[in-house]
Design a binder for these strands. Structure first.
Lengths: 223, 223, 223, 223
DNA sequence: GATGAATGAGTCTTCATTCAT
DNA sequence: TATGAATGAAGACTCATTCAT
């Protein structure tokens, strides 16, 4: 994450540059604190006081970096989205593995790098606030969900073209493929956070099954 | 209690009365209005004034039926859940169709009777508010999600026992089977509500694909 | 207490008149309930709902007899005051006992007929609400307190004239004489109501001492 | 904490700041304003808006110092009581004057330092609200009234032991001695505040008479 | 008359935002 | 910069009052 302050303070000569970096990191720290709070309590349910406290600064400091709560929220989404975008595309697009292997890689990588991180809460958050912040929802959809779907669709389409997968509705299949990942990630930030883990299934176990099922489902009717 | 639509008072011609008594129907009307508002704006983001207005009553009237906002919310969940519980279990459990057909029936019925209704928003709502209302989340999990999972798991297990399905991790497969349904239902109340329907896939199309895929995935390896 | 309704319902011939009296008594019952509530919780702290409930009628019924809360309160004071006015004056003014005996009679009678009754709470109530209802306070002062003081002052003045008491500041002495009675009566509706009775002194004991002290204090410097 | 008068900010010339920090003095100022308002209108009849306005701050500021109206009220009683406690005890307990002189001193001091101050209204207030705040009433009784009674009882008992006073019921006499003081103090915050001063007697005049009477009443029967 | 459901102005309380320090 | 005291608009909730039944 590369969130920089609005001003780059001129480094005093002789000063150890390490301390300057602290100031540059402030906004990112604030956004991290905000993400955690927003995910847990929702937008309206989160007080700026809480965000400030959990970031270890005073309430007023937030206003040095963000003009108001709404902009803080939007910045949060914007900045959090950037790293998501760069994660998979390159890696998977240029891989020369076979379709089934690519699917396995995608599922595992997605979970590892997104589903299991606190960023997954972002997805829940945005869905919950879509009614209040349509532009944010659109932004997230256009920048994250749509590309992600396209990526998966690409994998499947490539597999079909190569004869590794049977003919299916590519877009619909992409949705089906992604759904268990997304839902499990969201789940982790709602029910499972609230101590409801009894019957909850271990993600690895579910993902392994999911991979097997989807691979079997896509097997071409060869022979 | 079935949550009714809002306000259709058969006012006789003449001067319209400033208000009228509807002790019986009121609670359901209020809950219906509350559901719509809560789903759209979240718990904290919804004003009681709005709920009241959208139910066609004044603010004070809400307090005749519910002691406060939180109890209104809990009542909403409680009352909405009851009809959900009775929907599928009986029908599917006693069916004598084959496994693949049962799955198709389940998916279609689930979508028809839950996923495509406004009650689906309840799921999103509760997930969003799980952090603020753990008891509500637990209630919903115990009364709706868990039984639903068990129902699906039962279908799969029966299919395996009958040799209609191959051996799989039953619970994990149930999750995988349900996820696209749930996510699509949630989706409908977030992104798609916000006018983001461009790339959105028609539910029927996705569900049809989902059914095909899961049926294929569960096909026993015989022959 | 002779509180009558605003309308005297014409007695149907043949009807047992006892039942009609019920309706006539309504307002008095309502005022009695109101007095108890107002004394306990103050004017603003008392809900009309409570008064109605404690009188065994519905809220709306109050409005059949009193136009609003304030008028109910004023009626309460007005009606309660009437019996107070007639209590002592005649009896004591026309007595031919000696001064010390009259004082003893006054103290005991006052306590018996006013201080120990629920009407004593009225005094506390009016004092508490004097800031909000100056007219009521003035009314009570002019109709109750002032005459009462005058009565006591008259007793003392007569005693002095007869040589039963020594020369004193008559009005000031009247105040001193009445104060312990009033304060004890008020006390009974505040601290002692709240379960604070531990160190509280039995009224009879205090009054007996009070009588002795005031008699001794007024003893003429005879011999 | 001594409850201070309201607001005398030494604003420098130039543009007056919209508000200024006074973390130290604020609580006392707020309590002073609250006392005045509560005494005049009672607890329920006082709006926090009014207290704030009369303290020269905004409504929200009250909540920086007190969590809610009830706690503000309790803090008011608590803080106001402390100075009362320290007023008389030391002075009178260690005096070596004779009994009659001590009584005169007590009456005059009590009036000067309590009865004639705005704190006297506190007594009326607490009596009026005893029904709604029993704990407050008990606190006030235990911390103020009871010690005060004990102090007076001590004076009388000492006088009896020294032969300066005749044998009397000590506790009852203490009540009788204090009553005119308390009632006059309460009076000043009810009827006399409402412009009913016509027939009201000057406190000095009444207290002088009270002192004479009680001294005469306690005179030992010797000689 | 009597009831109590419905109303809405009025209060308490919260919290995003400002600004003196 | 950073702080946190102060603000005031907004929202939850109450309750005197009205009015359909």
């Amino acid at each position: 994450m590369t969130i920089a302050g609005p001003h780059d303070s001129p480094v005093q000569s002789g000063q150890p540059p390490r301390w300057e970096r602290r100031k540059e990191r402030r906004p990112a720290e604030l956004l991290a604190a905000a993400l955690a709070r927003f995910v847990e309590h929702g937008y309206a349910g989160t007080r700026l006081d809480d965000i400030a406290a959990s970031a270890g600064v005073s309430k007023g400091t937030l206003y040095l970096y963000f003009p108001n709560k709404e902009e803080l929220f939007k910045a949060l989404v914007r900045e959090s989205v950037v790293p998501l975008l760069e994660r998979f595309s390159d890696r998977l697009a240029s891989s020369d593995e076979t379709g089934p292997v690519l699917i396995e890689q995608f599922v595992n990588t997605w979970w590892l790098e997104f589903g299991s991180t606190r960023l997954a809460g972002l997805c829940k958050l945005i869905m919950a606030e879509a009614g209040n912040f349509p532009e944010v929802a659109r932004f997230f959809h256009d920048e994250v969900i749509q590309p992600n779907n396209a990526l998966v669709a690409g994998l499947i389409r490539r597999g079909i073209e190569r004869g590794e997968f049977r003919q299916v509705d590519v877009e619909a299949t992409a949705h089906v493929l992604i759904s268990p990942l997304v839902l499990k990630a969201i789940w982790a930030h709602s029910f499972e956070r609230s101590g409801i883990q009894a019957e909850s299934i271990d993600p690895q176990r579910m993902l392994a099954t999911h991979i097997q099922l989807i691979q079997a489902a896509l097997l071409p009717p060869n022979r």
